[in-house]
Structure formats: C-alpha cells, structure tokens
Design a protein around this nucleic acid. Structure first.
Length: 130
DNA sequence: ATTCTGACA
DNA sequence: TGTCAGAA
C-alpha cells in the first residue's frame, strides 16, 4: 500500500506519516520509483502510533513502547523497558499537571481580585487584539 | 492523479 | 503540521 491509502486507513496525515518515518518509527519499503510501500504490519503499527499519539506520547516514548506492544515474533519479551517508559511518562504528566495547577491557582487569584462591573480591561484587550 | 523532497507567510 | 513548488 502506498502512503495515501495508509493515511486514509490509519487516520494519520501523509505529512505525519513521513515525519514518523524520519523519526524512525515506521520503515516502509520503497518501490523502484521511490514510493513508500507499506505492509499490512506497517498499517497496524500506524494505527497503534495513532493511539499512542492521541494518548499524548512523544515519538521518543513510542520508540520504547512500540517494540514491546507490537510483537511480530511469537515470543513475548519481559519488556522491562515498557514499564520504565510508562512510569516516566506518568511522572512527566504529573509534573505538567502540577504546572497547570500552579497556573490555574495564579489566574484564579487574578480573577478573585478583579473589581466587579469593570469592562475597561476587556475593552483594552479587544483594542490590542484588533 | 499521486508521491517525493525540501522549504516556510 | 499544513501547504506550496517542481519533478517524476
């Protein structure tokens, strides 16, 4: 299958499919004319990548995860790397979450201190945005 | 019609 | 991440 079909069936844009390949996530064969030629396995991997991307995982994380999740070989590795990766992702998310909570608290404080019935700030924002 | 690579208002 | 160009 060529890139257009893979894009349609995986929901990943052609642009992103090429990007993921540049990142070493997908390695489709090439036809004589240089066109990418995806296998059925590539399609399944693309769909998995789609899932991981929607979960907010980075390409780096996918590099660790993919070898563990998609197991072409009948032998299942312990994949200790998988657990480590997942744990670091959760840790990363926890850090982001605390950052967001910090921002929320700060902005909520601004809101709490905002005088009532005053539209002047809104007006100035609109004029600067326009 | 589709894909390829490289570049960017 | 989209999109446009120029070539195949």
């Amino acid at each position: 299958m060529r890139i257009g079909e893979i894009s349609d069936r995986s929901g990943i844009s052609i642009r992103m499919l090429r990007f993921y390949e540049a990142e070493g996530l997908l390695r489709p064969h090439r036809t004589e004319k240089g066109y990418r030629d995806y296998s059925q396995d590539d399609l399944e991997e693309a769909r998995l990548i789609r899932q991981l991307a929607e979960a907010g995982l980075t390409v780096e994380a996918m590099h660790d995860l993919l070898p563990c999740i998609i197991s072409p070989e009948p032998t299942f590795h312990p994949c200790d790397r998988l657990r480590a990766r997942l744990e670091s992702e959760v840790a990363k998310l926890d850090r982001k979450l605390s950052d967001i909570e910090r921002s929320r608290a700060q902005i909520a404080a601004y809101l709490a201190g905002l005088p009532r019935g005053d539209q002047s700030d809104t007006a100035s924002l609109q004029s600067e945005t326009a």
